[in-house]
Design a binder for these strands. Structure first.
Lengths: 233, 233
DNA sequence: TTCATGTAATTAACCAGTTAGTTAAGATTG
DNA sequence: CAATCTTAACTAACTGGTTAATTACATGAA
């Protein structure tokens, strides 16, 4: 058959059953670091889901990348779907943790908004694979999959709620232009996220590496300026 | 096994081998409307790829939705991959056709930019499934798949080139703020596209239907204002 | 008019490769 | 001992793709 997927594989992993000539490799597991094994699987799953999407992801590939036996995936996670769900919690949980504190502080709306955008950007910039995982999620079925419902309630609603508050304050204080949160929020997310998920494409279009440190700094500045100009009076 | 996909199916199609009691159903194919058959397959493919991503799309499902035998897919298209490529050409070809004429006209940069954004928005609004297909594409492998190379060269480069020109003109005329096209372009795309690809998610978050006619009108106005405020001096 | 023949369009049935998930047995270590 | 983990073989279901037959129409000779 030999369909679509470009036959990834290779590097059959030189490691042979946990022991290496001179030194002991701290073989994952075996009372070693169960936490670390789980984390390793999760890391690998993020990468795999990001590159190949939810259906294209191969559990074998995840296990291999995590240097772990496939059976261990099913020791820690019920099935592929549960693993994906764990990935979502990891990604969005991290975002929420990074971003919510900003809303708790007592800055002026302007400042608060800038901090929020900056924090959001930094989180994504530090994990440029995340947008692809995310998009794999909201690419899903027309109506809300049960999974999406949960993710929306647990992560998006609180952030969206707080963001709406800030907007309200800013608008009432005549500092912000009057925008509908339902318009502003997805626009912001789009600006931040798409740059990263389109990075591979941009790389082929320009000569610059869109993910170089310098470029990212520039991009960050642009996003803040752009949003400021668009929102602030 | 019973993994991810929610067992779509149903409607086993009452039509039985071309003949129906009273009237002849204009059975697709068999010297019927070959053009229509091809188009029907493409339509179905757009929907399927949008909903389930490239690897998640099922050729059986596409055939069923197109009311056509699966083998006919392979009569018209070499394989699943070629079909996906045809979908891409359909989507991006349409966009290019809609958007490029704007650049040929001789409006002032300001006006030209607004026309461009409007045309882009309208095209997507008229085909809200397209963003998901698109994103399935640039979600793909880290580096440029050969396919992405082609799509980039054929569709994105010309548009990006023209957009850059307009930006240059506007900036030189002191009408636009000085922005890097490499920053502006993906931001714009993000603002336009993400609203639609996130629509299902938003639907669960708010009570409003994000795709109602009224909402789309509002959204369009917002996008134009937002971009104006951010770009124009 | 009729009949044979060619050809584009279409189908039902099938096949072979892939893949999620399982299982049984054993290894390692605190 | 119990928790953590490996190995490796196995299976049930699925899915892309093929094949051989079939249908409807067009053409042109008789």
């Amino acid at each position: 058959m030999k369909t679509s997927s470009p036959a990834r594989g290779g590097s059959r992993s030189r490691r042979r059953a946990g022991r290496v000539i001179g030194r002991r490799i701290p073989r994952l597991g075996t009372r070693g670091q169960p936490e670390e094994s789980r984390a390793s699987i999760l890391r690998a799953a993020v990468a795999e889901f990001a590159e190949h999407g939810i259906a294209g992801a191969r559990t074998d590939a995840i296990a291999r990348a995590a240097h772990v036996n496939k059976a261990l995936l099913y020791y820690y996670f019920k099935d592929k779907d549960a693993l994906y769900e764990a990935v979502l919690d990891h990604v969005f949980g991290g975002l929420r943790a990074r971003v919510m504190p900003v809303f708790e502080s007592n800055m002026a709306p302007r400042q608060k908004m800038l901090e929020y955008v900056g924090a959001y950007f930094d989180y994504i910039a530090a994990n440029p694979r995340f947008p692809r995982v995310v998009q794999a999620e909201w690419m899903r079925a027309g109506e809300g999959s049960a999974r999406m419902q949960r993710v929306a309630k647990e992560y998006f609603r609180p952030i969206f709620g707080k963001l709406s508050e800030v907007l309200r304050e800013g608008i009432d204080a005549r500092e912000f232009r009057a925008v509908n949160p339902m318009d502003f929020a997805p626009s912001l997310v789009g600006i931040i996220i798409l740059y990263f998920s389109a990075a591979p494409l941009m790389k082929t279009l320009m000569k610059v590496d869109p993910l170089s440190e310098e470029r990212i700094r520039e991009r960050r500045a642009f996003v803040l300026e752009f949003v400021s100009a668009a929102l602030f009076r």
